[in-house]
């Protein structure tokens, strides 16, 4: 990525309040093409709310969200999906009574354009997008199962596949490894790397710092709806405010050790 590229996403003084509670305050940031931006912060910091705003499910109270220069602040969720933003949810969302394949087909068929009437049957490209997305997350062999019966890791992977089937430019992932085991976290990490390798920009919310620092090109920490840190993952452990309000001394020391180890690992 060169610095002359205009950013893919621009959030300009975005604010969101629920009555008297301000969940996101005057937040401005950008995400460049091909970048992985990590977002952290304590519970209730406004991370999920930020995704709600960007995906149109709960539009901003003020400020603007631009995707490729286009104002999508007040666009509907489906229009934002068509514009190229797909998200996954913190609470594993899925179409429980649909099969795994049908879950992904929803994204492949409806995620690309808002035609008045869809085709009578999925087009070959839609079939291909479905197959590719299932392959990407490794769910091809289980595509006939009913989604509601899947274990938690598979549900999370299925959400990622559904998002990827829409062929997004920007993927928003809300706690993709929350509640997963160490090994499962590694598997999700490999999946995110495969997605990033296809050139998709990713914004990642995660409390699991191991995951967040390993993947993020840049990290932003929110607290009470405001940014308290933005910069490299390595800089997190040197930032007094981040240690005080979010990481704590213990976690911060462990993270510092992890970062030192990571540096010695062959690339």
């Amino acid at each position: 990525m060169t610095t002359t590229d205009p950013p893919l996403l621009v959030c300009d003084s975005v604010a969101k309040s629920f009555g008297s509670l301000t969940a996101v305050r005057q937040l401005s940031f950008t995400a460049g093409r091909g970048e992985i931006l990590g977002v952290g912060g304590p519970n209730g910091a406004g991370k999920t709310t930020l995704f709600e705003v960007m995906s149109g499910l709960n539009p901003a109270t003020s400020g603007r969200v631009l995707l490729e220069g286009r104002d999508i602040t007040h666009a509907s969720p489906e229009a934002i999906c068509h514009a190229g933003i797909a998200r996954t949810f913190q609470l594993n969302a899925c179409f429980d009574s649909l099969t795994v394949r049908e879950n992904v087909e929803v994204g492949a068929i409806f995620g690309r354009s808002g035609r008045m009437l869809p085709n009578l049957r999925p087009s070959p490209e839609m079939q291909q997008a479905t197959d590719d997305a299932l392959d990407l997350v490794g769910l091809s062999a289980r595509q006939g199962l009913v989604a509601g019966s899947l274990p938690v890791l598979d549900r999370k992977l299925l959400m990622v596949a559904g998002a990827m089937a829409t062929r997004p430019k920007l993927l928003l992932m809300d706690e993709p490894v929350g509640g997963l085991t160490h090994a499962e976290t590694d598997l999700m990490m490999a999946t995110v790397r495969r997605i990033a390798a296809t050139g998709v920009t990713i914004i990642l919310i995660e409390h699991v710092m191991r995951f967040l620092v390993a993947l993020s090109d840049r990290v932003m920490i929110l607290h009470h709806g405001e940014r308290i840190y933005e910069g490299s993952a390595a800089g997190l452990v040197q930032d007094r405010r981040v240690i005080d309000v979010y990481l704590g001394e213990g976690a911060s020391a462990r993270l510092a050790a992890l970062l030192r180890e990571g540096r010695h690992e062959p690339a």
Partner: peptide, 24 residues
Amino acid sequence: RGPLGLAFRALRDNPGYAMSRGVG
């Protein structure tokens, strides 16, 4: 069995999720 039915069923199962996957 077709795409329209898929849209109806997706909205039935989870409207918010369906909308964010492009189903108006």
